[in-house]
Amino acid sequence: MINFLNYQLDNFVWTNRFGFAGVAQQEERGLNGAFHIESTPLDVGRPITLSSQTAEPAGRIMPLMELARTTLGAFPLVINGVSYTVKFYHNPNAVVIQTDPDFFYSDADPDWFANVTLHFITV
């Protein structure tokens, strides 16, 4: 179960759950040729990507797009009972909510969206 800001996402999965190492590491050689490695655990900055492979109704996705545009502060995201403090990830390389209309209309909004992906980052 995935919940945040009064939204419940039943058809979404955490696609990059196991793609985060959680450690920052820097390495360098000393003037004497010795190899130095410094490591530290990362508590924040973990990207969380949620995706739905089913069609989602526009009545749920359109307000979510507006919420992502207007909610700039941190909020809790609960995934399977575990709470993460996150923000919408307004990364220049990724759109916060990526989706495609199920059908394109020339004079009306779509009724359904396909391939919906939400981007968050822990803070």
Rank of each mutant, 00 (worst) to 15 (best):
D109L: 13
G22N: 06
D107L: 11
P63K: 01
F18L: 12
A21T: 15
Y7P: 08
Y89M: 12
G33I: 05
V86R: 04
Y7G: 09
P92Y: 08
L31N: 15
N80D: 15
E38L: 11
V82C: 00
F103W: 07
T70D: 12
S106G: 12
D100Y: 07
L72I: 08
N6F: 12
A74G: 10
E56L: 07
F88P: 01
V82A: 05
D102T: 04
D102N: 02
F20W: 14
F103H: 05
L31T: 15
D43N: 06
D10A: 14
Y105S: 12
F4P: 02
P47F: 05
N115Q: 13
H36N: 14
V95Y: 03
A55C: 07
N6K: 08
V116C: 05
S106K: 04
D111H: 08
I61D: 01
N3S: 13
F103I: 09
A34K: 11
R69C: 10
D111I: 09
G33V: 07
L72Y: 14
P47G: 01
T70C: 12
T54A: 13
R17E: 14
N11A: 14
F103G: 00
F75W: 02
L9Y: 04
S106Y: 07
D102A: 07
L31F: 15
N3L: 09
V23D: 08
V13F: 15
V96N: 04
I61E: 03
V78M: 07
N80M: 09
I37Y: 05
G45W: 10
E56T: 08
N80L: 09
G81M: 06
T71G: 04
W112Q: 06
F75M: 05
R17P: 02
G33H: 04
H36R: 06
A34D: 15
S106V: 06
N16R: 00
D107K: 00
F12Q: 02
F35R: 11
A21C: 10
Q26C: 08
V82Y: 02
W14L: 01
Y7M: 06
P92M: 08
K87S: 06
A68N: 04
S39W: 05
V78E: 13
M65G: 01
D43F: 09
V44R: 02
T117Y: 11
E56Q: 15
M65V: 13
V95M: 11
N93Y: 11
S52R: 01
Q98E: 15
A34C: 10
S106I: 00
L67S: 10
W112M: 09
N3C: 09
A94W: 09
I37M: 11
G73W: 05
P47I: 04
N16H: 07
L42R: 12
Y7N: 13
S51Y: 00
N6H: 13
T117I: 14
V44N: 05
A68C: 07
I79R: 02
A114V: 14
G59K: 08
